[in-house]
Every structure is written in structure tokens, then in C-alpha cells.
């Protein structure tokens, strides 16, 4: 197994107070490695999205640590956390969250613009990432003119544009038909995953389990088991 990408230790997260207090994640520990595609699977309300948010520096845990590149990300300041998300993590949201009023290439260029690259340079680089996902010819179209699968690929291009070490997919197949969903994950596995990158996917779509290296099953905020994928 390659080097460690993420190390989570005893992560706890609750919502609400007093009698309304609910534990979404209860003392979860796990590790994810570079070159690995790790699935977090479980029913709705099992805590997988909360866990993913804590790993990606979006949601502060009540207790526990998340170590990425030898640093506990929750010891960082809010600005450092924003930099961490920009430089180390790439997000592919369930609903993609592409800006409908921008062109496809402008959407892909957003992380580069946030990294303070010049506009023209951002667009040039964004075109390269669109080429990787096979949508160069769609660069000047608004995302609404693209199919669901194409929008998903634009979101992937945007996520990899900042060359992150960790890629996070939230229910990547939820808005796609089975065939397109499988094609997307297959594409990600073959073209996006590499030995310097770790991909974490939250899903409950068993049709794409065959692409996972490991599948971590969550229930009631706890890890109930870890299986090898590809079966």
C-alpha cells in the first residue's frame, strides 16, 4: 500500500443540545492511502456525509483528529483551512453545483482563479482539464446545455483543476442512470486516480462497488466493517 493520505482518529460529531443532542459520528477512526479509491457506504443518516465533511476541513469535529500530510487539519486557522480545501482537497458535489451563468471552462477555472492565477492562464489550464475529461469541445457552453454525465465530468475537471491530493465525491451516481454512473466511476478510476492521489466516495449505489479498492460500511455513526472492493 502507498503512503497515508488521510488518518482520522476517534472522530466524534454531534448536533443539537440537551435532549435533542444526536451523535452523527461516534468515535470513528480510519486511514486512507494514496492510490486508493475508498468508498464510504451506508444508509441515509448513517453519518457518512458528516464524516466526509470533517475529513475535508468543512465541519469541525467535537473531538478527534484528522491528519493530512502530517498536519492535524483542525489545528489550522480558518484561512489555513480554506487554503487546505483549495490546495489539497477536490470536491465533486452530488448536485455538481456548477454556475449556470458561466461557461463550462469558466466553471472549471474557478479553483485556479481562487488560487490567484491570471484569468487567461486559468482558462488555458482549465481547457487542459476539460480535455482530460473529454469535454474540450463543450468549453464555451453553459453547463445547463450539457447532459447529466457531462456535467458530472465538468465537476470532476473542476475538482482536479487545483491538483488536489484528495478527491471527494458525494454520491457521484445519484443523479445519473446506472450505465452513465458506471462509466463515470470507471473513467475516474482509470484517468483521475493515481499513486499520488486518494479518492473518497460516499455512496450507497452498489452498482459501482466493483471499482472500489476498499468499502467502509457505516451505520449509526460508527464503522461496522471494512471490505475489499472490486467484487
Amino acid at each position: 500500500m502507498a503512503g497515508m493520505a488521510v488518518q482520522a482518529r476517534e472522530l466524534v460529531k454531534s448536533f443539537g443540545e440537551g435532549e435533542a443532542k444526536t451523535f452523527a459520528v461516534r468515535g470513528v477512526s480510519f486511514e486512507a492511502h494514496f492510490g486508493e479509491m475508498l468508498y464510504i457506504e451506508g444508509p441515509s443518516g448513517s453519518g457518512k456525509t458528516t464524516l466526509l465533511s470533517m475529513i475535508s476541513g468543512i465541519l469541525r469535529p467535537d473531538s478527534g483528529t484528522v491528519v493530512v500530510e502530517d498536519k492535524d487539519i483542525w489545528s489550522l486557522t480558518s484561512d489555513q483551512l480554506a487554503d487546505f480545501r483549495l490546495n489539497t482537497v477536490g470536491f465533486v458535489f452530488q448536485d455538481y453545483h456548477l454556475f449556470p451563468r458561466l461557461t463550462t471552462v469558466e466553471n472549471v477555472a474557478i479553483p485556479l482563479i481562487l488560487k490567484k492565477l491570471e484569468w487567461n492562464e486559468s482558462m488555458t489550464q482549465a481547457m487542459r482539464y476539460l480535455e482530460i475529461v473529454g469535454l474540450r469541445d463543450r468549453a464555451q457552453l453553459p453547463p445547463v446545455k450539457l447532459s447529466g454525465g457531462e456535467q458530472q465530468r465538468v465537476a470532476i475537471a473542476r475538482a482536479i483543476a487545483s491538483q488536489p491530493d484528495i478527491l471527494i465525491f458525494d454520491e457521484p451516481t445519484a443523479s445519473l442512470d446506472g450505465d452513465t454512473g458506471r462509466k463515470i466511476v470507471d473513467f475516474v478510476k482509470k484517468n483521475i486516480l493515481n499513486e499520488n492521489r486518494c479518492i473518497l466516495i460516499v455512496t450507497h449505489d452498489s452498482r459501482i462497488f466493483e471499482y472500489a479498492d476498499r468499502i467502509m460500511r457505516m451505520e449509526d455513526g460508527e464503522i461496522k466493517g471494512v471490505e475489499k472492493g472490486g467484487q
Binding site: 484561512d79 480554506a82 487546505f84 483549495l86 453545483h97 481562487l114
Partner: peptide
């Protein structure tokens, strides 16, 4: 209408002041 997109920008790494 754009609130979720702004939220997504925040998640991606945009700072509040931006």
C-alpha cells in the same frame, strides 16, 4: 438563487472576504 453556489465556492476554498 446562487446561495448554494456561493456555499460550494466556500467549500472549494474561497475565503469569506472574497
Amino acid at each position: 438563487e446562487n446561495l448554494e453556489k456561493f456555499g460550494a465556492l466556500k467549500a472549494i476554498g474561497a475565503r469569506g472576504y472574497e
